[in-house]
C-alpha cells in the first residue's frame, strides 16, 4: 500500500507542475484568446534559468552559480517574463493561427539553443546534479516527495487564488472584453495590445515557474524535456478540462496526465510481453481516441467557463 501511496504522491506532484503550466495557458487562451503554441519554450527558459542559477559550479561550464533554491525560482520567473515580453512585443499583434505558428517556432528555436549552446546548457548531455530543495533532510524518497507535494499545493493554491483575484478585478474584465470584442474594447479606450501583452507575460511567467519546479523536483534537465509534444499535452489539458475556467485547467491536467499514465499501466498489464512494441502503439492510439471522444462528448470541456463577469463570456 505504501508503494501505491508513494506513486500517487509522485503522480500528484507531476500533475500540479503541469497544472501550473495549464493555468498559465488558461490566462493566455481561456481569458485573453492568445493562441500560444510555444508553451514549452517558456517552460524551458524557466527550467534552464533555475538549473543554471542553483547548480554547483563546474569548470567546463559558464554559469552554474550554486545559489539558493528560492533565488532560482525567482530568476526562472524573471527570465521567462523577460523572454515573453520581448517575444510578445514582436508577435502579440498577430492573429490566431499566425501567433500560434510564430510562438511554436520560437519554442523550437529555444530548444535548439539549449541543445547547441553547450558551454551554458551542457548541450545534449544536459545538466545533472540540480539540487533538490532540502532533499538531504529526508531519509526516503517518499519523505522528500511528500514535502515537495506540500510545497506544490501551497504554490498552486497561491497561484490559483491570485489568478482568481486578478481575473475578477477590472484588469481581468478588460481581458475578457478584448477577447470577446476587441473593437468594442478599443472603442472604450482600452489599449488592447498592451493588455494582451501583459496577459502573455504573466501566463508565460507561470510556465517558467513550472519549468523551475519541474527541474528542482527531478534534479536533471536536458533538451529532450522540451519537445513539442509537451505543448500539445498542455493544450489538451486545457481544452479537455475546460478553457476559461481555472478549476477546469487543473482538472484537465489531472485527467490528461491520468489517461497518459493509466493507459501505459493498462497496456503493460493486458498486452503479452512478446507484443510490447505493438502495445506501445496501441497505447498511443488509445490516448488519441480518448482525446477525440472527450471533445465529441464534452465539447466545452469537463467544466466549462462560468459566466462571472459578463453574460457574453459564455460562448
Amino acid at each position: 500500500m505504501i508503494g501505491i501511496f508513494s506513486y500517487l504522491v509522485f503522480f500528484a506532484c507531476i500533475v500540479l507542475i503541469l497544472g501550473v503550466m495549464t493555468l498559465g495557458l488558461n490566462l493566455q487562451w481561456g481569458y485573453t484568446g492568445l493562441f500560444n503554441a510555444g508553451v514549452v519554450g517558456f517552460y524551458a527558459i524557466g527550467a534552464y534559468a533555475h538549473a543554471i542559477l542553483v547548480t554547483a559550479p563546474r569548470p567546463d561550464l559558464i554559469g552554474n552559480f550554486g545559489l539558493p533554491w528560492i533565488v532560482g525560482i525567482a530568476g526562472a520567473m524573471a527570465a521567462s517574463a523577460l523572454a515573453a515580453w520581448i517575444i510578445g512585443l514582436a508577435t502579440i499583434r498577430l492573429r490566431g493561427d499566425y501567433l500560434a505558428i510564430a510562438t511554436f517556432g520560437i519554442a523550437t528555436t529555444i530548444q535548439l539553443v539549449t541543445l547547441n549552446w553547450d558551454s551554458l546548457t551542457g548541450g545534449a548531455q544536459g545538466l545533472p546534479a540540480i539540487p533538490r530543495p532540502l532533499s538531504t533532510w529526508f531519509g526516503s524518497p517518499l519523505g522528500f516527495n511528500l514535502f515537495y507535494l506540500g510545497l506544490l499545493i501551497a504554490i498552486v493554491g497561491l497561484v490559483y487564488w491570485a489568478l482568481e483575484r486578478i481575473l475578477r478585478s477590472p484588469w481581468g474584465r478588460v481581458l475578457k472584453a478584448i477577447r470577446e470584442d476587441e473593437t468594442a474594447a478599443i472603442a472604450l479606450g482600452k489599449s488592447a495590445q498592451s493588455f494582451r501583452l501583459q496577459a502573455f507575460v504573466l501566463g508565460s511567467t507561470l510556465m517558467g515557474l513550472a519549468g523551475a519546479l519541474y527541474v528542482s523536483f527531478i534534479g536533471f534537465v536536458s533538451p529532450f524535456d522540451f519537445l513539442p509534444i509537451l505543448t500539445f499535452q498542455i493544450w489538451a489539458m486545457l481544452i479537455v478540462g475546460g478553457s476559461g475556467n481555472n478549476k477546469g485547467a487543473l482538472l484537465g491536467a489531472l485527467t490528461i496526465w491520468g489517461i497518459w499514465a493509466a493507459s501505459g499501466v493498462l497496456i503493460a498489464k493486458l498486452v503479452p510481453p512478446a507484443y510490447a512494441a505493438q502495445g506501445g502503439a496501441v497505447q498511443v492510439i488509445l490516448i488519441g481516441l480518448l482525446l477525440v471522444a472527450s471533445l465529441l462528448f464534452r465539447p466545452r470541456g469537463l467544466i466549462g467557463e462560468v459566466p462571472v463577469v459578463s453574460r457574453h463570456a459564455d460562448d
Binding site: W29, F232, W235, A236, I239, V240, S243, Q278, A281, V282, V284, I285, I287, G288, L289, L290, L291, V292, L295, L296, P299, D315
Partner: peptide
C-alpha cells in the same frame, strides 16, 4: 470551438500515425 477541432485533429493524428505502425 475551432480549438476543439484542432485538438480532435491532434488526437486523430496520433491514431492515424500509430495505425500505420501496427
Amino acid at each position: 470551438h475551432p480549438m476543439s477541432l484542432v485538438f480532435a485533429a491532434f488526437g486523430a493524428a496520433l491514431v492515424m500515425r500509430h495505425v500505420v505502425v501496427l
